[in-house]
Design a protein around this nucleic acid. Sequence first.
DNA 1: TTGTACGCGTTATCAT
DNA 2: ATGATAACGCGTACAA
Lengths: 339, 339
Amino acid sequence: MTYTIKDVAKRANVSIATVSRILNNQPGYSEKTKAKVLEVIQELGYQPNAVARGLINRRTHTIGILFPSLSSLFTGKLLSGVEKIAHEKESSVIACHTQSQGLKTMKYLQMLNEKRIDGLIFTSELLKEEYYEYIKKIDIPAVLLATESFAFPLPYVKVNDHHAAYSAVQYLIKKGHTKIGMISGLPTDPIAGKPRIQGYLQALEDYQLEVNKDYIARGDGFKFGEGKAAFKQIMTQFPDITAIFCASDELAVGAISQAYEMGIRIPDDVSIIGYDNLQIAEMSVPPLTTVAQPLEKMGETATHLLFKMLEGSNDVENKIISHQIIERESVKALETRDL
Amino acid sequence: MTYTIKDVAKRANVSIATVSRILNNQPGYSEKTKAKVLEVIQELGYQPNAVARGLINRRTHTIGILFPSLSSLFTGKLLSGVEKIAHEKESSVIACHTQSQGLKTMKYLQMLNEKRIDGLIFTSELLKEEYYEYIKKIDIPAVLLATESFAFPLPYVKVNDHHAAYSAVQYLIKKGHTKIGMISGLPTDPIAGKPRIQGYLQALEDYQLEVNKDYIARGDGFKFGEGKAAFKQIMTQFPDITAIFCASDELAVGAISQAYEMGIRIPDDVSIIGYDNLQIAEMSVPPLTTVAQPLEKMGETATHLLFKMLEGSNDVENKIISHQIIERESVKALETRDL
DNA sequence: TTGTACGCGTTATCAT
DNA sequence: ATGATAACGCGTACAA
């Protein structure tokens, strides 16, 4: 049996209005009736119906979050941060899995709209016009997480990919490397592809190192298998490369794995630096040096931002989260250079 | 602007009853009015309010899922499978993060109850009496995923841990190993601790191998760091051990990592077999041989089971999912034995 | 301090 | 084939 506010009212010999007031601690009752009502609530184990509340308050205390993949190593941390803050704000989070498909994404957006979520977090991929138009049409607060949009004005929280990539390559250079390759994502990916490639290029230029476009092996994504393939390709073509910047930790671990198969020693023969600092970074053999995105913190920040919007704040600003080099053992110093 | 059924009705010159009928394709209108109404719906971009629907239908098309951790490698796959089926069933899933804390868990349970979720999935940890009593009290369909309860009658889906552990050790034995250690979780953990230890013990016994309780190094959990520590301990104490069964892939990868630090070669000096088959298993160097739990499939199965319960089916049965040895490169054959 | 009654957006029952 | 209208469980103006 699940009780309603009416049951409580009847049993406590008061009106539902009084019960409601007590529940929402608004003024208008004596301490005595309050005590009585609370007692009855306790007794019955009454729990307010959030659905009814949502209907009348126009607030469901639920937010939605869209991920291209739910099972990637990346997603967990993000979700964890988001859920943490949402929970602090008395809200819950509906996790959706778009598989990067436009159709699925639109369906999820619709479903979330029908459920009247309070706000939306969109993660890790490009915001298509179709999505933006819909979000705008249903007029719901939304923030971008681990992605950004150049075309549409939605606030975002992410690291500066260009800068982070630059830092990684700079680190390699300061360790004395001069022949530096890269395993990248798709250059057509404006979020995680191109900016990292450009950061890499920029660093080489700034330090007057040879830039050879063929030093960049492109994966179709950021996955392990692609890292393996790319490493093989790059190392057979340019065996004199001494260090590689990988655009993701999965790519980097793939490279390490491939190196092992090829009998190439990391970091003795070639140094590897990754990007992300996922759990696998510390678990790899050797442990992976990488530039960290603080994913959990990013999730928290995005959620704080979203709630600020919900509370009607007007100073919603994009947040660039600072990245950081995590030194482990996959990079070897050559003759060190002072720069 | 977000429209209601009233707006549609007015604009189409029909009653809200008719609109509702069309929306739920129930009989009682002409093709002509149907067309007209659909047209208006299109025009306005009307989307039914699921909150109002939930209130009257007593069905929210939302299920809740409780995880001890949201960011573990384990969780993602499980969630992915659950979400997939839920989505097929036109439902969404609220992900909760209990941190294995009783208080938090109870709070989540309450919140989910207030939101009037249709069903609940409880994962990866022991179902306390308090939880069960509450679930029973609010009278909501629930299934256990990657865990089971000996004390309380909730259906579960998981692999047979005892059997899976047995298989792993048997595999080692068939590869010719006779001095086999184990890195385990807590023996007091009735779900993932004890059964795996007993499976290990049983296999040794069945094949008349020496069982030495000290060959078991206990972690406080199943994490990477614990794997490292346990490996160090076990190998310094018993350097003649040739193979180790690890109760999780994280533990196994920790062992491999530690081996690397100690200059012990895997699998040449010692063989390692893991448990889970997470993504890290294929990524490790060398790639990890392990006994696979099909996590995604388990998530799917649990969700199917839950929906069966929702639909009032009475043949809800526990599902034991079959495990499977995934051969990779972390186990070396000694003189092979025919057994 | 307290209660009545309307409305939130639907579905469903009963008329017509 | 269609329309009024009463729920669903709650919050809140208004009245008392």
